[in-house]
């Protein structure tokens, strides 16, 4: 409870609906995203966690037939990032994402991390070098790769590739970072290292993470939203959700009675 008192609002979904063509995948979602906190989205497979997450960086704009209704307001400017007047590229410049499966580009480690900077027109060597180093350090990868920054990223292990993708997302100083089941394709050791990393990023970045792993949500997040069939059933402090949820459905899911 104490967390919510101190937290300031970084973004807020207000009565958000989302349609894949005629299929309504999100139904009236309203939750806050607190600044410099980790918010976890949990729920059974197919309940709309990824769909919701991908609204935040307008990923759905890449495919025809998708439609948003309602708002996601982003602070401090209080703009509705779903408005057709807002350029999705502008949104993605402020909100970065890490995917389920590590997806490094066919480039060197250095160029992978520098990608977002180059896309923004930053090409000055000294700036790039500095930002890449900081990002790799923040992603706890620097010591492992500092001697081979110009090797192909594919030569890294799966866990290292995912930390590289985190570094890539960190390098642009995002206001919010979106994580879609970032450890589901990784072995337990790599998963542990990513969770450890999240813990370190916690106080510096606003993070929204989808996970199907409840222990993970309980371990890393400050707030948790439990979703079911396209709706948020319950949103609360993570501690509250996992110790004393308000809704029976939440309790059933958390105790493993369904899902």
């Amino acid at each position: 409870m104490s967390a919510s008192v101190q937290a300031t609002l970084k973004a807020e979904a207000k009565d958000l609906n989302f349609y894949y063509g005629d299929f309504k995948a999100l139904k009236g979602i309203s939750i806050p995203v607190h600044d410099k906190k980790i918010t976890a989205l949990i729920g059974p497979s197919g309940c709309g966690k990824s769909t919701f997450l991908r609204c935040f960086n307008r990923m759905h704009d890449l495919y025809p037939g998708n439609r948003y209704e309602g708002e996601i307001t982003l602070n401090p400017d209080n703009v509705n990032i779903l408005s057709p007047k807002v350029d999705p590229i502008e949104v993605r410049m402020r909100i970065s994402m890490v995917f389920q499966k590590p997806n490094p580009f066919p480039k060197s480690i250095f160029e992978n991390v520098a990608y977002g900077l180059r896309v923004r027109g930053i090409n000055k060597r000294s700036v790039l070098e500095e930002k890449v180093e900081v990002a790799l350090q923040n992603a706890a990868l620097w010591n492992e790769v500092k001697d081979r920054l110009h090797d192909l990223a594919f030569n890294l292990s799966g866990g290292q590739q995912q930390r590289l993708c985190i570094a890539r997302a960190l390098a642009i100083d995002p206001e919010i970072m979106l994580f879609d089941e970032p450890t589901s394709a990784l072995d337990p050791i790599a998963t542990a290292s990513i969770e450890e990393l999240m813990d370190e990023l916690k106080d510096r970045f606003t993070i929204l993470i989808v996970t199907h792993n409840m222990q993970q949500a309980a371990r890393v997040s400050d707030f948790t939203a439990f979703m079911y069939l396209g709706e948020v059933v319950e949103y609360n402090d993570t501690k509250k959700i996992f110790t004393n949820p308000d809704k029976q459905q939440t309790e059933d899911y958390i105790t493993g009675r369904f899902g």
Binding site: M59, I89, R92, S96, F99, N103, F105, V119, R168, I172
Partner: peptide
């Protein structure tokens, strides 16, 4: 998923295609 990775970094369609 590679294209999505690029778009998610704020790249344009052209940047994604070429880079």
């Amino acid at each position: 998923h590679l294209r999505e990775g690029s778009y998610a970094m704020g790249a344009t369609r052209f940047q994604t295609a070429v880079r």
